[in-house]
Design a protein around this nucleic acid. Sequence first.
DNA 1: CACTTCCATTAACAAATGATAAAATCGTAT
DNA 2: ATACGATTTTATCATTTGTTAATGGAAGTG
Lengths: 188, 188
Amino acid sequence: MIKEIINSKYPISKNSLNEIESLVELVDYGKGETFIKKNRRNLKEYFLLEGVCKSYLINPEGEEITISFFNEKSILSPYTTRTQDEISVINFQALTNTKLATIDAKEFERLMIDNLEIRNFGNTVLRNELSQKVEKEIGLASLTAKERLLKFREQFPMLENLIPHTDIASYLGITNISLSRLRSDLAR
Amino acid sequence: MIKEIINSKYPISKNSLNEIESLVELVDYGKGETFIKKNRRNLKEYFLLEGVCKSYLINPEGEEITISFFNEKSILSPYTTRTQDEISVINFQALTNTKLATIDAKEFERLMIDNLEIRNFGNTVLRNELSQKVEKEIGLASLTAKERLLKFREQFPMLENLIPHTDIASYLGITNISLSRLRSDLAR
DNA sequence: CACTTCCATTAACAAATGATAAAATCGTAT
DNA sequence: ATACGATTTTATCATTTGTTAATGGAAGTG
């Protein structure tokens, strides 16, 4: 399962794969559980085996802002990009019941240093993280809300019927009322 | 000069600094020059010593979308985050005459592998890149255009009188006409 | 079953932003 | 100084999005 996820990003040899798999631990989280908390210590990398997650922040008005969604069989944002001095700078929540594989981030860093394949894999994940952000940024800056919704549907086909629309609305940068309007608009 | 820039992000020892400085080459680019071109080979890391730059992309409508601005004495987006298979995925342009220090990206990667301080420095730059994107994303998703303009002014105090407003407007996700309205609004 | 709570939808109005066109301003070259 | 071209501002109208409030439905609870 992890093999499948890794190979979908950057294929690596059987050996390298074994190095990673020897470090893996499995964890389950229930629907609604926030398993990476902002301002709390966290030292893990995550593979999302089953279920759906989001990352989010609280804005100055106290509202939850969805930053990203994560589909089944994907990799959550790399440790380096969401952690400062071993303290998380963002929240991750299970939107459904989930199964995750975790690796100690320091041990994975060591693997990246020692093993070129794993390093390339890690850097690919990193770059993908960035380019997704750039793409979302471009969307927010230059698409209408309707276009952003259509793009969201392509990227996360099942989510609209699975999770609260409030989460989707804040991801799209609109109110949930606007989202509802767009939905009925697109339905006819 | 490079010392100053590095230490402002993540202070490192004299030794590590020398390792970096031994690899540096200086380059100048004139106002308007696009010195990293999308779909072109690029293998460098960049320190911006003097002048101002932007990164940008062309959207499907053929319009330039400004992704980020870079102030004097800062570090441009790390190689890994803007490059795939040694080919750039984004453009960088000098908005004024600029002086840059460059390092071969592969050699810098080697330094990161061999030297813990430099690795920490590199990862800090990477994380900063990400968190700036997240912050901008939140801004686009949950602030009004007027609030985004005010934030832009805090972050880039001189830019509004220095570069074409079209560049700023696309960065803020509005038309240049809206930008003009907001300017006159805020002026009274 | 009645009741609550949470979400999603709808309506009506206000505010913000976009599109188009026309005027004003600025910098630069002649 | 003048003229040109590019940029910025202003004006007008259309569209999109936000705000507030009311309504309806689904799921869970006593």
